[in-house]
Design a protein around this nucleic acid. Structure first.
Length: 729
DNA sequence: CGTTGCGCTGTAGGG
DNA sequence: CAGCGCAACG
């Protein structure tokens, strides 16, 4: 095995295979290289069977890459090794043994939207207002309970104060509903795996014996539950290697505990600690900037990351008037740089997904190829959600959350009344709607509806059979055909229905990809659904050409020759909600550090003096993170200081105010049949009918594009078109 | 009963 | 600006 070209510390990290090992790996210091070589070294030199190795990565993409790189390094078969994310590892463990906890092996994984509807249902039942009790914040409370491994009863017992008590009660309801439906949320995957290990010693012991060598990447971003899980698994052999960089901890908001990495030495006193401080990625200019920024954090162990590359070019700064202009400035720079770099070598990073729009608009106009990472918009489309719900119900008939979604989609005359009766009965049975339907006859549901329900069950049961021997693509086709979903869309000739059909077609590229990767097997549907639930934003980053756009969070672990960071404004980044909280501000600053250190050669930092955000025009000051970079590292825009807002007369530069709106009446206008009119929104049309008198006069107008409408003559924003207008056009 | 439209409100990051 | 809930209407 070839270990040449590695520096002393990297080599030591590869060869220290026994006992606990902490690798503090600065950005770009080759930690992926160390991890892959270490695994290859275990297999090749130490003759460890691949079966005994576990590597936990942050994303599926990282897992795939690691598998490929290990395969290249060694000859023998490394496929029995587990390389996966925390979540997919837990799915695998639970799939085998979750029955010990009373859940069905066909369990569903809820997406965040499903979680919200569960909470909303609970609130409704308790007669609580969703405005006073925001489902999102309730869910984040529930999530943090789970990350802390606090069970509902314990939460209730320890609750202090009214809100605590209420939320812990809701947590209990929530968990009971999920249990009845054999449904798990993301946090359950970890928490229930631990519960399983605690309850069934044999199961834990099996995995402890199996995983003799454990690796965890991005250890600084593990939460308490994940920490416990790793600790349990590593207890027998204590061959645990964790890799991370506390300066890159950016997931506190979802429970990541930076103390996990800081306290590693306390947990494993015999641990070896290795620091990788040589950066192979970025130019000195870029690294100096990153170091200068992160140095402003007080809660950190100082570290000295050295550049291995040359000086490099200065960091460019762009200041634009608006977010639109910023988009165009980026496009212009991308064009200029495309002489030296491929589009695939460039990435644009922003704080929030909402910022992508202005940038994307500019790219669409320029016809430069680009790809956007994340933004799960596609999967939250109605038709995709519907299809997924069908698949989930076929996989797990007890999944009421999905069942309720599709029970009357397409319309089959099963109304809310019927659903309510079924729900009530399901609760009595302590079971699901699926089971309740079997008793439909005795629930006072009209015979006609009972027949409909039975035929739906029949369709679903048939599809379940089909799922065992069909490819996913074929199964999707069958679902759409057998449930009448396809008919519903095809008979609807609207543009909307057509675009829904296109989206469903698009969805099949995903199933085709899945089908290509694996032979038909009877648990393909389960595999497909869990894969879909667990895809991370980064998994969309591929090698195909085109400029990449993504959030700074999504960029973690990646590198690009050219990086643009946009929206460097106070209130955007750092974001408004953390600006006055020192702890959170430090996390924000680490995010800046992550973003800066993605760049290899060229870096541009950009801001706009005003931007439209959430429907408001905002004038924001320059981000403090930009001012934390020493001026001598920056290439300032010509004839302009970056340090002032250039609005000499603030807020008056944004153009003339809209004319005050005058409520227009058409009192003095007489319409007659055949008049050509023009409407503010609907455009041109012809008056076809007139009804009523005076203030109540109604006009039927057939519009060229918007079709027929009935409007009140007096108030509709209508203009009668004269001969003169006609000639002008 | 189902659909549409209006008005209000929240408003990040992700497995 | 977008998504959601509710009210009113067909």
């Amino acid at each position: 095995m070839d270990l040449s070209g590695m520096n002393k510390e990297q080599l030591q990290a590869v060869k220290t295979t026994e006992g606990p090992l902490l690798v503090m790996a600065g950005a770009g210091s080759g930690k992926t290289r160390v991890l892959t070589h270490r695994v290859a070294y275990l297999l090749d030199e130490k003759q460890v069977p691949s079966y005994n190795i576990l590597a936990i990565t942050f994303t599926n993409k990282a897992a795939r890459e690691m598998q490929e790189r290990v395969d290249k390094l060694i000859n023998e078969d490394a496929r029995k090794m587990w390389i996966s994310t925390f979540h997919s590892m837990c799915v695998r463990i639970l799939r085998r043994d979750i029955a010990y906890l009373g859940y069905d092996t066909s369990f569903s994984i809820l997406d965040p939207l499903d979680q919200q509807s569960v909470v909303k249902d609970i609130l409704k039942k308790r007669n609580l207002d969703t405005k006073q009790h925001n489902p999102r914040s309730i869910l984040s409370v529930i999530s943090s309970y789970k990350n802390q491994l606090i069970k509902p009863d314990q939460a209730i017992a320890e609750a202090a104060g009214f809100l605590d008590e209420l939320y812990s009660e809701i947590y209990k309801d929530y968990q009971e509903i999920l249990y009845r439906n054999s449904a798990l949320d993301f946090d359950d995957l970890i928490m229930l795996t631990i519960e399983l290990f605690e309850k069934e010693e044999a199961v834990l012991s099996y995995y402890q014996t199996r995983f003799q060598y454990i690796h965890v990447d991005e250890y600084q971003d593990t939460n308490h539950a994940q920490y416990r899980l790793v600790k349990m698994l590593a207890e027998k052999y204590r061959n645990i290697c964790v890799v991370g960089d506390s300066d890159q901890s950016i997931y506190k908001f979802r429970g990541a505990d930076i103390q996990n990495i800081l306290n590693f030495e306390r947990d494993y006193p015999e641990a070896t600690i290795i620091k990788l401080e040589e950066n192979y990625r970025s130019t000195k200019m870029i690294l100096d900037a990153a170091n200068a920024v992160i140095d402003n954090n007080t809660e950190r162990k100082p570290k000295n990351l050295r550049s291995n590359k040359g000086e490099g070019a200065k960091i460019e700064v762009n200041v634009s008037q608006s977010e639109r202009e910023e988009g165009h400035a980026i496009v212009a720079k991308v064009k200029a740089l495309s002489e030296d770099y491929k589009y695939g070598d460039m990435a644009i990073l922003y704080r929030a997904n909402a910022q992508s729009r202005a940038i994307e608009d500019a790219f669409v106009k320029s016809s430069i190829p680009y790809k956007m990472v994340g933004g799960t918009k596609f999967y939250s489309r109605m038709e995709i959600k519907d299809l997924m719900s069908y698949l989930k119900v076929i996989q797990n008939p007890f999944d009421d959350i999905s069942f309720e979604r599709i029970i009357n989609t397409p319309k089959r005359g099963i109304g809310t009344k019927t659903v309510e009766k079924l729900q009530a009965h399901a609760e009595q049975l302590n079971s699901s709607i699926y089971d309740a339907i079997r008793d439909a006859d005795f629930l006072g549901i009209p015979q006609k509806t009972v027949v409909k329900l039975m035929s739906l069950l029949d369709v679903l049961d048939n599809l379940k059979e089909k799922s065992k021997y069909m490819s996913m693509t074929d199964l999707v086709d069958e679902v759409l055909a057998d449930t009448g979903y396809l008919d519903m869309l095809q008979s609807d000739k609207t543009l909307e229905a057509r675009s829904r059909l296109e989206n469903l077609e698009e969805f099949k590229t995903v199933t085709k990809e899945f089908d290509q990767e694996r032979p038909i097997a009877d648990d393909n549907l389960f595999e497909f659904l869990s894969e879909m639930a667990l895809v991370s934003d980064q998994d969309g980053v591929d090698d195909s050409s085109g400029v990449t756009m993504m959030t700074m969070h999504a960029s973690k672990g990646l590198e690009f020759k050219v990086i643009f960071i946009v929206g460097l404004e106070e209130g955007i980044f750092p974001s408004k909600r953390v600006m006055f909280d020192d702890k959170e501000l430090e996390e924000e600053r680490r995010l800046m550090y992550v973003a800066l250190t993605r760049a290899m050669d060229y870096l541009m930092l950009s801001r706009a003096e005003s931007r439209m955000l959430y429907g408001r025009l905002e004038n924001n000051m320059m981000s403090r993170f930009l001012s934390e970079i020493p001026e001598e590292l920056l290439e300032k825009p010509a004839n302009q200081s970056i340090f002032s807002n250039n609005n000499s007369s603030p807020s008056f530069k944004t153009g003339p105010k809209k004319k005050a709106r005058i409520i227009q009446t058409n009192n003095d206008v007489d319409f007659s049949i055949g008049d050509k009119v023009s409407h503010k929104v609907f455009g041109d049309g012809i008056v076809s009918q007139i009804k009523g008198e005076g203030d109540n006069t109604e006009l039927d107008i057939v519009f060229k594009t918007a079709g027929p409408k009935r409007l009140l003559a007096n108030y509709a924003p209508l203009e009668k078109r004269t001969e003169l207008d006609e000639r002008k056009n």
